[in-house]
C-alpha cells in the first residue's frame, strides 16, 4: 500500500497531483534538506510546510559530496551533516513526519552512494516502512542501472526521475517508461539555486515531454524558482512547481539571525501556494 486506505489513486504522489488538478490549481512540491538545521527543527519545518499547503515534500538526504547542488543546498547539507544528518536520520525524519501527517506525499531525494552502500533493496524496504512514497536519486540513471527502479517498484514506491534540457527524445521516453509519481523537468542546464532562465524554452520542452511520455504522468518544473511570481509563471505551463534553494535560504537566514525558522518558512510556503491558485 502506497497510499491512504481507500484512496482511488495508485499512489499518494499521483493523488496529490490529482487533488490539485481537481481544485483547479497546480501542485506545490517543496524541497528541504533533512536535519537542516537539526532533526527536531527539520521535523517541525517539514510538518509546517505540509500544513501551509505543500502537496509533495522532497526530503533531501544530506550527502558529503552534492555535486549537482549549488551553494544554498551545499550549505544546508553541511549544516545537516554537522547535526548528525544522513540517510539513517532522513529515514527517521520521514517516519516522524508521517506519524503526524498521513496525507502529504513524501519523496526521499538524494545521491546514489548512501543508497548503494545500504543496498537498493534494503533502502526501498526502509523507505517504505518509514512512510515514504517515492525516491529521487540525482546520480542514478534508471536506464544505466535498473536496480534502484526495480527495488522501489517491488515496494510499490515511485521512482521520480529528472529530465533535463539536454535530454534527447529517446532518453525522455526511456526515463518516463520506468518513472512513477511525476516527471521532474529541470528548468535549466545547471545546478540547483541558479537563476530562473527564460521560460519560453522550458514551456516548449514541458509540452514535448508530455508528448513523448504519452501524458501518463504529471510534469513538475524546478530549479531556479525562488518567488511566488516565479511559481505563478511556471504554473502557467507545468502541472507542478518545485521550490528548493529559495526555501532552504529562508531557513538559513532565520537560523543565522537566531530566530525559529518555522514561522518564516510557513509564511513563505503559504505565499507560494497562494500564487498557484
Amino acid at each position: 500500500m502506497t497510499n491512504a486506505p481507500g484512496s482511488p489513486f495508485p499512489s499518494r504522489i499521483a493523488g496529490a497531483f490529482a487533488r490539485a488538478r481537481s481544485q483547479g490549481r497546480k501542485a506545490l512540491v517543496l524541497y528541504l534538506t533533512g536535519c537542516d538545521p537539526d532533526f527536531e527543527t527539520s521535523r517541525r519545518l517539514l510538518l509546517a510546510a505540509a500544513r501551509a499547503g505543500t502537496d509533495v515534500l522532497e526530503l533531501g538526504v544530506p550527502w558529503s559530496d552534492p555535486s549537482a547542488d549549488g551553494p544554498a543546498i551545499q550549505a544546508a547539507m553541511r549544516r545537516a551533516l554537522a547535526a548528525g544528518g544522513g540517510m539513517g536520520k532522513a529515514l527517521d525524519l520521514c517516519r516522524a513526519v508521517r506519524a503526524d501527517n498521513a496525507e502529504v506525499a513524501i519523496v526521499l531525494f538524494g545521491y546514489a552512494n548512501p543508497i548503494f552502500v545500504r543496498g537498493a533493496a534494503k533502502f526501498a524496504a526502509q523507505a517504505k516502512q518509514a512512510g515514504a512514497d517515492g525516491a529521487l536519486c540525482v546520480d542514478w540513471p534508471a536506464d544505466e542501472d535498473p536496480e534502484l527502479a526495480q527495488a522501489l517498484s517491488q515496494q510499490g514506491l515511485d521512482l521520480v526521475p529528472l529530465i533535463a534540457p539536454t535530454s534527447t527524445p529517446e532518453r525522455v521516453k526511456a526515463i518516463a517508461a520506468v518513472a512513477g509519481g511525476f516527471l521532474y523537468y529541470v528548468s535549466l542546464t545547471g545546478i540547483t539555486g541558479s537563476q530562473l532562465p527564460n521560460l519560453g524554452e522550458a514551456s516548449a520542452r514541458v509540452r514535448q515531454v508530455r508528448e513523448l511520455s504519452g501524458g501518463r504522468l504529471p510534469v513538475a518544473v524546478g530549479f531556479g524558482i525562488a518567488t511566488p511570481a516565479d511559481a505563478r509563471a511556471v504554473a502557467g505551463f507545468a502541472d507542478g512547481v518545485v521550490v528548493g534553494s529559495a526555501a532552504v535560504r529562508v531557513i538559513e537566514r532565520a537560523v543565522a539571525a537566531g530566530r525559529d525558522p518555522v514561522p518564516e518558512l510557513e509564511a513563505f510556503v503559504r505565499d507560494l501556494r497562494a500564487a498557484l491558485g
Binding site: A68, D139, E144, L162, A164, T166
Partner: peptide, 12 residues
Amino acid sequence: GGRYVSETLMPA
C-alpha cells in the same frame, strides 16, 4: 564503472 551522473550530463 558505469555512468552515475545527473541526467543533464548523460547526453554529453
